[in-house]
Computed example of a mutant assay.
Amino acid sequence: MGAGQRYDVIVVGMGGMGSAAAYQLARRGKRVLGLERFDIGHSMGSSHGVNRIIRLAYFEHPDYVPLLRHAYRLWRETEQAHGEQLLFITGSIDAGPRGSRVAAGSLASCIAHGLEHEELTAGELARRFPGWRLPDGYSAVYQAEGGFVASERAILAHVWLALRHGAEIRAREPVLDWSTTAEGVCVRTPQGTYHAERLVLSAGAWMGEMVPALAGKAVPERQVIGWFWPKDPELFALDRFPVGNLLTEHGHFYVFPQWGMPGFKIGLYHHFNETGAADDLPREATARDEEALRTGIRHYFPAADGPVMSLRGCLFTNTPDEHFVIDTLPGDPRVVVASPCSGHGFKFASAIGDILADLACGARPAFDLDLFKLDRLGKAA
């Protein structure tokens, strides 16, 4: 089965970026094959766990903001096309000690791009959003357009839409190898061999194994996210608690209101700094993982310090500078490389899928992608 079949584009990986690329290519009339090693919508990678933060105030780098505006537009278009809400607006908080990277970087991004925002002291933040309890000397930036994307539902929406536009999607079909030929690209799986004009590689935590130029540069890292039933649930309701990033002496936490799962959701960037091959990192959560998350809750969200509802492991895939990779392979524009996203990429999936479709069609994207060039990372480690 599958021997010798030919497509315009093959997309490897049907996670956040790959599913969006498959949809955008299919809607342009391309004959698309999407390959996924696991199930469509699985828990082995980086996109499960109900939802992911989206925010316009971007402390990581102001150059992300134009891409974010495009992502917001496309999430709304995807909602309309699929008939299901995917983007939820709660407002966003970026906070930390006054002058710290998160608070100051968010403010700089707002100023650079003319985003409406408010600067709040710790006391002002607590009075406005009582679920937040920060120490004196902390500051926060509130931006009203922040919120979250229903990440699991968004992947399914992109796959549904890709199928509706004629794409062929195959789950539980891992890629054994890929190669380029004079005629295009060739992808081999246990089920068959497929040929195409172009190839999009969007395999998340497995990118370092799939793309030699990313070996040692795309490093999988174990994460754990948790949901905790609050002592005062109303303080963490969807309309009373903004999503947020909080840099503290105990680590960098990210938080969500209650939605989709019972409880307040919290994660800790670079959880225990556990890195390794994607297949070797444990997904099971432990009491030690819970305690790391509770440390953040007890110090900064004490009204949420109730029983644990759920703990789930997932993966980040980090580059050395924690910026994305969105590029074609050096010397071969037929092969498009998508991400890794260093733990802050899902919000961009709608926009990156559109850009990947441009690159796979040989078109020039409408965005400056210099920050995401592959060759900035140097030679493989």
Rank of each mutant, 00 (worst) to 15 (best):
M1H: 13
V11T: 03
G13L: 07
M17K: 08
M17N: 08
Y23V: 02
V32R: 02
I40G: 12
S43D: 14
S46T: 13
I53D: 00
L56F: 10
A57E: 12
H61M: 01
H61V: 00
D63N: 07
Y64P: 05
L74G: 10
W75L: 05
W75V: 06
Q80T: 14
L86G: 05
F88A: 05
F88D: 03
T90M: 04
S92P: 00
S109G: 11
E124R: 06
A126S: 12
L134S: 03
Y142H: 12
Q143K: 04
G147F: 03
A162G: 07
A162K: 01
H165N: 14
E168V: 09
E168C: 11
L176P: 03
L176F: 03
W178L: 02
A182S: 15
M210C: 12
L214C: 12
A215K: 13
Q223P: 01
W227Q: 07
P230N: 11
R240V: 01
F241A: 08
F241W: 08
L247K: 13
F253N: 07
Y254M: 08
T275H: 13
G276E: 01
A285N: 06
D289V: 04
L293W: 06
R294D: 11
I297S: 12
P302T: 08
F316H: 11
T317R: 05
V325M: 05
V336M: 09
V336G: 09
C341L: 13
G353P: 05
D354H: 11
D370G: 12
D370Q: 13
F372N: 02
K373Q: 15
